[in-house]
Amino acid sequence: MSDHSESTTPSSTSTRTTEHAPSISSDSLSKTKSAIESLSAILSSFPSNLSFSISSNPNPAFSLLHDPQVASQVSSLLREPNSGAGDNNLCRWLYDTFQSGDPNLQLIVLRFLPIIVGIYLSRVALRKPLAGFEAVLLALYAHETTSRAGQPITMNVPNLSLPSVYHEAKAPINNNSTELNLAVISPSLEPHGTVRSTRRARIVGVALELYHSKIYHMPVGSKIDFCDFCVVWAGQDNNDDRDLNKESGSNGRKEGRIPLPWELLQPVLRILGHCLMGNTKNKELFDAAWAACNSLYARSMHDINPKALLATGSLLKLGKKAMEPSEDLDPTEIRKSNVLVI
C-alpha cells in the first residue's frame, strides 16, 4: 500500500494554505499550538514552516491538515507492524486531538481515518492488539452518537404523484400514498464503550459516515488512501476473480478481503461516489476510485449480493459518463435528436 501525499514543497503548501485558511479563535489557536507541540515530539522530523506558522498563520491547523511532510510521516507510523496498540503514542495523540472538541483539529484526525480503518480491518483477523485504533474509532462513534441525539439520518424520497418543477400532476389527495416518504440512511445509534465483533462494522461504518460528511475538507491524498484500501478489502482481481490475500511487502502483514456487510459498504460507496463525481478534477483520484469500484463490483459478483451489485454497478455507469466529453446540457431541455420531425 503506497503512501499518497500532495507533491508540493512545504513553502508552497504554507503559502497556499495561508491564503485559504479561515481565522480561528484564541482558544482554538491555543489548542492547536499544544497539539502541534505534542505531535512534533512523536515525529522524527517536524516541518519548520509549521512551527513558524503558529505565530504567523491565522489557522495553523489548516496548514497541518494539508502539509505533505506531516502526512507522509504519520502515514508511515500508522502502517508500522506494531501500530494500533493501546500504548501507541500516535494513537493517543489522535484520540486526545479529536477529544479536544476543536473542529479544525478534528479534521486532522479524520484526514488519517482511511489508513486507521484500512490497517485496523486488515489486522482484526490476525488478533493483534489494536486497542489504540479502537479508542480512536470509539471516540468518533461517540461524537456521532452525541451529535445525532438518538435520531436516525433520513432523506425524503420524491413522490411522483406530487407535482414538481419537472412534471405536472393532478391535485394530490391528502392520504398516506401522497405523503413524502422517508428513507433511513443511517439508523439511530446506541452508545458503545467497546468494539465487539458484532458491533465492529457498525462502529467503523459510522466513523466513515463522519468522514464522508467532512470529505470536502479532506486532502486528495487521504481520499486516494481510502480508495486503495477498498481494493484490498474487496480481495478480488478484476481479471479472473482471484483472491488477493497476500503478504504486504512493506511490513510483512497479511492483507486481504474482509466481510463487507451493508452497514459498512454503504458509507464506503458514498465516499467512492464523491471521489468519482466530486468537483475535484483529479485524474489520480478518479483512477483510484474507478479501480476501487471495479474491485467491489467483482466482489459483489463473487458474493452474489444483489444490493451491492446494483450500487457498485451504478457507480461504474456514473464513472463511465464522467469519462465522456462534457457538454453543457440542461437536463430539463429536450435534445434535438429526441424530437420527431414530421
Rank of each mutant, 00 (worst) to 15 (best):
W262K: 03
A292P: 02
K31S: 12
L316S: 02
N294H: 15
G235Q: 10
R200K: 02
L78P: 09
E6V: 05
L29E: 01
S12G: 01
D241S: 10
P68H: 04
L269C: 03
K320I: 04
V74W: 12
S56W: 14
G84S: 08
N245R: 15
R202L: 10
K246E: 12
R123S: 04
E284D: 15
H302K: 00
R335L: 07
D225Q: 12
L340S: 12
L140D: 03
L269W: 01
N238M: 11
L121I: 14
P22I: 03
L140Y: 06
R79A: 06
E284H: 14
W262D: 03
P261H: 02
E144Y: 06
L210M: 10
S56A: 14
W290N: 06
E190K: 11
V157P: 12
N49D: 15
I108D: 13
N156F: 05
T145R: 05
N294S: 14
F52L: 14
T312R: 01
F62N: 08
M1H: 12
N251K: 06
T13E: 10
L90T: 05
T32C: 12
L65F: 07
E134T: 11
P60F: 06
L137H: 01
S122F: 06
N159Q: 09
N294G: 11
L78D: 12
A35N: 08
W290I: 02
V109N: 10
V184D: 07
S34A: 11
I258R: 08
T154A: 08
Y166E: 15
E247I: 07
N239C: 01
L208M: 09
G313R: 01
A85V: 07
N89V: 04
I115N: 05
K254V: 11
P331A: 06
Y216M: 08
A142G: 02
T194M: 09
N245F: 14
C293T: 10
L269A: 02
A61C: 12
R111A: 00
T9R: 06
I36A: 05
I173Q: 09
C91M: 13
E6L: 09
S188A: 15
K307Y: 04
S295N: 03
Y120D: 04
N156C: 03
P306Q: 02
A135G: 02
A292Y: 02
Q266I: 06
D328W: 13
I54Q: 09
H217C: 00
I108T: 11
G313M: 07
E255C: 02
N174K: 13
K254H: 14
L64N: 08
